[in-house]
């Protein structure tokens, strides 16, 4: 038997970030979105960072306001619009998902298919917990801390450029969470082949009682199943 999907693959890079306490509610969702935007840009699926692209596209959509948009956007603008719309939709549904259930893991699969992606990015939130707004860490500094760690670990620089391809998003959630948009993938296991990067977030320090440490409230991981977003994010280049 080869290495099973649920164990970390030997030699695959991992970035661990430990926050000094619980982070305020809604952060898990923010981390997932920011990481996806970052990965898409770093792996050549978006020619510009997401925020810039969204800005230019909004400008273009509003019509001639005198500002010349980058030439590259003209040609690929339809693809760009489509991808941005899909991403926006995805983010909304992700937010719903995060509000319905505890999400221990999120996967971004680039290229190939759901069983054999070319590259696999895992956001591991098993040791992560959210707390109430007053007593927890703010989201923004934590996002900065995450990206600082990613930058220092230098995980993207030695990779070969990836051709434009499709990206799939999978989210682990509770079986009975009642989410409708995402499709359940009951017997899915995280693939063990392909290049994999794990980003593991955890919260250290003395956790306040109001925080929700997943280990205590949700001991039955077997009730957590994978859900797949019913869209393929098609990347584009200039």
């Amino acid at each position: 038997m080869g290495p099973r999907g649920d164990r970390p693959v030997l030699g695959s890079p991992a970035v661990a970030v430990a926050f000094p306490g619980a982070v305020c509610r809604g952060s898990g969702y923010r981390f997932a979105c920011e990481l996806l935007k970052h990965v898409l840009h770093q792996r050549n699926q978006l020619p510009l960072p997401y925020e810039q692209l969204a800005y230019f596209c909004r400008r273009a959509a509003q019509g001639g306001d005198g500002i010349e948009k980058p030439r590259s956007l003209g040609l690929a603008s339809r693809k760009c619009q489509q991808l941005l719309t899909e991403l926006e939709g995805l983010f909304q549904h992700l937010e719903v998902m995060f509000s319905l259930t505890l999400v221990p893991r999120v996967l971004f699969l680039l290229g190939g298919n759901v069983m054999n992606p070319k590259e696999l990015y895992e956001l591991n939130l098993e040791g992560f917990c959210e707390g109430s707004a007053e007593e927890s860490l703010q989201t923004a500094p934590c996002v900065r801390q995450l990206f600082h760690r990613l930058f220092v670990a230098d995980v993207f620089s030695e990779l070969k450029a990836l051709p434009v391809t499709g990206t799939l998003v999978l989210v682990q959630g509770h079986r009975d969470c009642g989410v409708e948009w995402f499709r359940p993938k009951l017997n899915y296991q995280v693939p063990s082949r392909g290049r994999k990067l794990t980003v593991k977030l955890s919260c250290d320090g003395d956790l306040h009682v109001s925080a929700s440490p997943p280990q205590h409230t949700a001991p039955a991981w077997e009730d957590y199943v994978w859900f797949q977003a019913p869209v393929t994010l098609k990347g584009f280049s200039e």
């Binding site: 079986r175 009975d176 409708e180 499709r183 359940p184 009951l186 017997n187 199943v225």
Partner: peptide, 10 residues
């Protein structure tokens, strides 16, 4: 044939 939206255990 299990429905694609179904979450029931096998």
């Amino acid at each position: 044939h299990q429905k694609s939206s179904s979450l029931a255990k096998k």
